[in-house]
Amino acid sequence: MSDSAIVEAARQFILDRFLPGEAAGALTPTTPLISTGILDSLSVLELVTFLENRYSIEFAAHEVDRAHLDTLVAIESTVRQKGGRG
């Protein structure tokens, strides 16, 4: 099964911006991002800005945390809950 468009867009953004030179396969839909330090607090902010602009959604302050953003799968479900379409 191929990954959804949202997973793919988030993966590409994270690879380009924070893991240049890394193979796409290094980032699976369930690779932990925040707890492993792939995303630090500044990168999380950039990711949120990217998702908000791309999907015309808004995050509340308390939603920017591990529960909502720690994996590509979690990112996708957060974006979908907010009405973003892949």
Partner: peptide, 11 residues
């Protein structure tokens, strides 16, 4: 802007 946006605004 929204509460919690300070770091993004600063960046």
């Amino acid at each position: 802007n929204l509460e919690g946006r300070g770091a993004q605004i600063f960046r």
